[in-house]
């Protein structure tokens, strides 16, 4: 339970960090809070030649509200995000999901960017980013680029980040009018990895019909899965419609089996949690101006 030997590098700028990642060409691990990387190193599931500690890169700190979107620096700690009134106001789904991310003690150190870069299929933050249609900002040697969440998460612990790129920030679409957000999950113990997590964002017309609906499932497949809900647009935003959405997603998803739960149990959870979560999002949306 001790990591294998590695070189420790602490760059002072993003350019230096990228230069290190280029030098080690896929053999370096990026360390921010270390709440995912630490266990993987200790259990020797990864044995990088170098660990690049980016904690001191000031330009990766902070929360900026822009027109239409909110930028969170890759290093924003989960505990600080949870305390941020700005984020609670502008990205309500994130505020709902953060209490489920690890524990008080791990949120004190874990970062938003680290969780997204790690890409655990059951993690809450990648799920929220995918559900909202957010983007990942990557810094490389020549350019900075943005990748849509749906193109970023490729599979378990696998993303479209190039080895010489650094995740510098996340872009979250801002809260929309007449839109409700809801989040729920089932885990063995609060804060443990979700067996199934469900995130929903629903926009409802003034006469109570579904205008837009995005439902994301975590812990079900090898990446956050955003369900196709097109068939329900124009339907009344009622608990019955929520149940129908849940049925459709439970039917269509392809859940994994692991030591925590069977595929059948996960499917049952998708049905139950999606029904509840979508109904809550509808209800919330009706009360939003």
């Amino acid at each position: 339970m001790k990591p294998a030997a590695f070189e420790y590098c602490r760059p002072d700028t993003v350019a230096e960090a990228v230069a290190l990642l280029t030098e080690f060409d896929g053999e370096a691990s990026v360390l921010s809070g270390g709440m995912s990387l630490g266990p993987m190193l200790n259990m020797r599931l990864v044995r990088p030649q170098a660990v690049v500690d980016i904690k001191h890169l000031r330009s990766l700190e902070g929360i900026e509200v822009r027109s239409g979107e909110v930028w969170t620096g890759g290093l924003v700690r989960q505990a600080d995000a949870l305390k941020s009134e700005t984020l609670a106001r502008t990205v309500p789904l994130l505020a709902l999901a953060l209490p489920f991310v690890g524990h008080f003690q791990t949120r004190n150190r874990g970062t938003l960017g680290g969780s997204v870069a790690h890409a655990d299929p059951s993690a809450e933050l990648p799920l929220c980013l995918a559900t909202l249609g957010g983007q990942v900002e990557l810094g490389g040697r020549r350019r900075r680029r943005r990748v849509a969440a749906r193109d970023f998460f490729l599979g378990t612990f696998t993303t479209s980040r190039e080895p010489a790129e650094l995740l510098t920030g996340l872009l979250w679409p801002r809260r929309e009018p007449r839109t409700g957000y809801a989040f729920d999950e089932m885990a063995h113990r609060h804060g443990d990895f979700a067996i199934v997590a469900v995130a929903a964002a629903a926009t409802v017309t003034p006469d109570g019909r579904v205008e837009r609906l995005s439902v994301g499932l975590g812990g079900v497949e090898d990446r956050p899965m955003v369900g196709d809900t097109g068939a329900f647009l124009g339907h009344p935003a009622t608990p019955d419609t929520a149940t129908a959405v849940a049925e459709a997603l439970a039917e269509r998803c392809d859940p994994m089996t692991d030591m925590k739960a069977s595929a059948d149990y996960r499917r049952a959870l998708v049905r139950e949690l999606t029904g509840r979560t979508v109904a809550r999002a509808f209800d919330q949306a009706r009360r939003e101006p």
Binding site: G34, M35, G38, P39, N42
Partner: peptide, 13 residues
């Protein structure tokens, strides 16, 4: 000042 896991942090950090 923050409660953290000391097993998930390196001394050099």
């Amino acid at each position: 000042g923050r409660a953290v896991r000391s097993c998930l942090q390196f001394a050099v950090e």
